[in-house]
Nucleic acid binder design. Sequence first.
DNA 1: CTGAAAGCGCTTACAG
DNA 2: CTGAAAGCGCTTACAG
Lengths: 352, 352
Amino acid sequence: MHAHARTIVTLTRTTRGPTAGPAFASAQEVARLAGVSRSAVSRAFTPGASISPDTRAKVEAAAAELGYHVNHLARGLMRQRTGIVCLIVADIHTPYLSRLLDCLSRSLQEAGKVVMVLNAGRASGNVEGALRQTLNYRADATVVLSGTPYRSIAQSCLDSGQRLVLLNRDDHLPGTANLSVDHARAARTAATLLLRAGYRRLALVSSAAGTPSLTARRDSFLAAAGQAGARVVVWEGGATAYESGLEGGTALLASDDPPDAVFAVTDLLACGVLDAARHRFRRRVPAEIGVIGFDDIEQAGWASYDLTTFAQPVRDIADWTVRLVADGEVEEPGTRVFEAPLVWRSSVARGA
Amino acid sequence: MHAHARTIVTLTRTTRGPTAGPAFASAQEVARLAGVSRSAVSRAFTPGASISPDTRAKVEAAAAELGYHVNHLARGLMRQRTGIVCLIVADIHTPYLSRLLDCLSRSLQEAGKVVMVLNAGRASGNVEGALRQTLNYRADATVVLSGTPYRSIAQSCLDSGQRLVLLNRDDHLPGTANLSVDHARAARTAATLLLRAGYRRLALVSSAAGTPSLTARRDSFLAAAGQAGARVVVWEGGATAYESGLEGGTALLASDDPPDAVFAVTDLLACGVLDAARHRFRRRVPAEIGVIGFDDIEQAGWASYDLTTFAQPVRDIADWTVRLVADGEVEEPGTRVFEAPLVWRSSVARGA
DNA sequence: CTGAAAGCGCTTACAG
DNA sequence: CTGAAAGCGCTTACAG
C-alpha cells in the first residue's frame, strides 16, 4: 500500500481539498511547461526582478494556459509580509461606519493591500477569538474602526511587529498611530450656533455607549454652554441609534421644561429627535426647535431631515490610514486630529 | 562575510520584515521551550489530534509565554484549506448591503471562517485585479453580494476548485450556488395591493442600473398591472439611490398625468419619491399618493417615511451562505429562492 | 540573466 | 502518544 501510494503521487493533489475537484497550478508546473526554472517563474511575477523579456514571455504564456495565480500564502511566508490589513469594526450596518468601511477598503485596495474584516459586534460570538485572527493570518497591520479594543490583543499586535492604527480612541497605547476628529471644536461650535440663533433652553441627547468620541462631544458642549451661562438638560440612553433619539426627544419634549434646541451627538440620534419633535409634538423646525447632529450621514441630507451637522473627515481618515499602513514609509506613531467641518442645512435658525 | 552571516543566523529574523521590530514566535521555538517535538506543538493546536494532557499542558504554557499564534498561512499551505472566504461587494455604504455584509460576516465568523472583503465599487481602481485576490489568497469560497460579476473570474474560481455562491444574480453559471429572492411574487403583491386600495394611475420608479433583481421587480410589476388592466408609467434613471427617487418622483408628479401610486423598486428610491411627493408637491400620504418600496432598510421604519415594503430575507441568505460554504457538507449547487415578506406600514391605504 | 539550493512555518502519514 | 522526515508553494541570496 505504501509503495503503491508513492507511485501515484502525481494524482494526490486531486484527491485532497474540500471539493476534491480541480486544483491550483503551481509555479513548478508552470516552469515545466515553459521550460524554465522555478526561480524564473517567481521572477516573472516579481516587479523589478531581473528577467529577460524572452523568459518572461514564455512564463506568462505557460501561466495563462494553466490558469496560474501566485500563492500569496506561500509568498507571505517567505517575504514576511502578507499584504493583509485587518479592519476591526462593530456596527457595520450603521451609515457612518459602513461609509468609512467602504472608503477605507477602497483606498487600501488601491494601495495594493487586501482587506480582512473582523466583525466586532456584541452578538458576533467570540470577539476575542475573532480578533486573534489578525495574528493568525499575520496581517501587516490592523486598524480598529470601532468596537471594544481589547487591550491585551492590541498589545499582542504590537509585540508581534504589526502596525496598529486606532480610530477615534483616547487610550493612546504607546506604539500605536491614532487618527481622531476634533470633537471638542465641533461641539463648541454647536453650542455657539444654537445660542447665537437665540435658542435658550438647550438639551443634549446621547446614547449610553460612552465611547470616547461621544463623551468628548458631550463634555465639550456642556463646557461651552456653561461658559456662556446656559443650562443644558442631558438625556442619555440606549444604543447609538435612531430609536434612542426618538425616545430621548420624546422624553425631553414631554417634560415640564421642554428644550428649544438640542445637540444630538450623532446624526442617527438627531434624526430620531427630529421625528419626535415633528411627528409627536408638532414642533416646527427650526422656528420652534433647533437640532444639530454629528457625522453627516447620507440621511442628514434627505429632505425630511435636512439636518445641520458636522461632516466626518472620512477621506482624510482613509488617506492617512493608507499612509500609515503602506509599505516603506514609516510614519511616526502618534495622534493626528482632523477637523469636522460644519454642514449648514435648515434644522437650525440662522443667528444674527 | 558569508561565514559571518551564517554565525548570526539566529538574529536574522529580527532584521527582516517591515518594521524590523519584534517578530512572531514559531512552533519550533515553542517546541524547544516546552521540551517536546515540533509535531507535538502542532498537535496541541489541532482539535482532535492525539496528544497526552501532560504534553498539551507543557506546550500551552510555552506558547503562552512566547505569545505564539499558529501561522494560518503555513497551515493553509499544508491543509489545502485556508478558512478564508471572500466577499465581493459594491456599494458597501448602502443600507441594505451594509446590513447584509454585517450579517454575513458575523455568521461566517461564528462558523470559524475569516472574511476577506473585495470592494467592487466602480471607483475602486482595478476591480478585476482586486477580484484576482480571491485566487491569490486561495480562499475556500467566494460569494458575490453585488457588483459586476466578471464571468472570466468566476470561471477561474470554479476551475480552481473554489466554492462560488452568487446572490441575486440570474446568470446561473453551472457549478455555482445561487441564492435569490422571490422578486416576482413581491412585485405582483405590490400591484395587487395598490389596485385593491383604489389607486388607479400607477407608476414604477427604478434606477438605470439594470441589475437582475431590479429588472425582475419591474417586469413582474408591469405584468401584474397589465393583467389587471392597469396602465403603468415607468421612470428609470440614475443610480439606485435616494436622489434618483427624488428626481423620478418629481418628474412624475410634475407631468400632465401624475400618478397616485408608485412602486419604487428599492427603499432608497421610495424615500426619494416620498420626499418629492410630500415636500415638493404637498401630497398627503397615503390619501393622495401611495408608495411601496423594497428591502426594508432601517429608514423605512423611521417616522418620516413609515414605508410599506418587502423585507429582504437577510437572515436566510446568511444562514444558507454559511451552509454552502462550511466545511464538510457538500450542498448541491443550484438555485434557492427565498420569500420577501410584506411589511405593512402607513404609506399605502388599506384596501377593502 | 539564470538555476540549484535553502528555508519560511506549518501538517501529516509513518514507524515506533 | 510521540518524533523524524517529507512536503505545501513560494522567494532569495549565491554562484555562475
